[in-house]
Amino acid sequence: MSAPVGIVLVSHSADLASGLHQLVRQIGSDEVPIGTAGGTDDGRIGTSYDVIHEAIRHADRGGGVVVLPDLGSSVLTARTVLEDHPRSDVLIVDAPFVEGAVAAVVTAASGGDLEAVAKAAQEARHVSKL
């Protein structure tokens, strides 16, 4: 069996990242490594370069990592981390935060590779709720 793709949830809010982690953990599988990077180093609203970098290391099991930021500075900070530590197996994905995370985790849990997990997250943007 190949190594699973990890998922990193990057949010301005530690509570939001943690809550989404709980949700996708129940939907997905314990086999999908999920890292969360919510808030600043001192627990405030915002983003942290070091917290994102550590979450990527935490989620990396050898199958690659999909990084899902919520908005604004989480995107910029995640991009900076990836520019400073370039890896072809770590992708930042433009996807809706909740729906993208659910799609990514379900795909990773079913054995999808890095490309399939990233594509599933991106395609979640086009799934109608009503």
Rank of each mutant, 00 (worst) to 15 (best):
R125S: 09
G28K: 06
I7F: 02
H53D: 13
V117G: 11
S74N: 11
K119Y: 04
E99Y: 05
L16A: 07
K119H: 06
G28F: 07
I92C: 08
I52A: 07
S18M: 09
S74K: 03
T80S: 05
I45A: 13
D84Q: 15
T40Y: 01
V90K: 10
H58T: 15
E31W: 02
S74Q: 12
A59H: 06
I52H: 01
L16P: 00
A103I: 03
V93Y: 02
L68D: 04
R57S: 14
D89V: 08
G72C: 09
A108K: 01
H12T: 10
L82D: 13
I34P: 03
V8R: 04
L68I: 14
P33G: 10
L130I: 07
S48N: 08
G19T: 01
L16Q: 00
I27M: 15
L9A: 00
V117L: 10
A101N: 05
L9N: 00
D42A: 10
K119P: 00
D60A: 13
A3L: 04
L114Q: 09
G46E: 06
L16R: 00
G38C: 06
V105M: 02
A103W: 04
V8F: 02
G28A: 10
G38M: 05
G43F: 11
S18R: 11
E83S: 08
D113Y: 05
G6N: 04
D41V: 11
Q22W: 09
V90P: 01
V106Y: 03
H126F: 09
L16T: 11
D70Q: 11
G46Q: 02
G62Y: 15
V106T: 09
E115N: 12
D41G: 04
V5W: 01
V90H: 01
R87Q: 14
L68F: 05
G63Y: 05
T40C: 05
V93P: 03
R87S: 10
V75K: 07
V24T: 12
A118R: 02
F97N: 01
L20G: 07
G100L: 02
I92S: 13
G72N: 08
S73C: 08
D30S: 12
I92L: 15
L82V: 11
V98K: 13
D15C: 00
V102M: 09
D42P: 01
R125G: 01
V66C: 05
S13Y: 06
I52F: 06
D50C: 03
P86F: 03
D113P: 07
A118I: 09
P33A: 14
H21Y: 15
S29M: 03
S73Q: 08
Q122G: 13
V90F: 08
T47M: 14
S2K: 13
P69V: 14
P33W: 09
S74D: 12
S48I: 01
R44L: 13
V5G: 02
I27K: 07
V8E: 02
E99M: 10
I92R: 15
G64M: 10
D41S: 10
V5I: 09
V93R: 03
S13N: 00
A17H: 03
A120Q: 07
A108N: 06
V66D: 08
V105G: 05
V127D: 14
R87G: 06
D15M: 12
V127K: 15
P96L: 12
T107E: 05
G35N: 11
A59Y: 03
I56E: 09
D113S: 14
Q122R: 15
H21E: 11
P69M: 09
D89Y: 04
A118D: 04
S13I: 10
P86V: 11
D60N: 12
D84H: 10
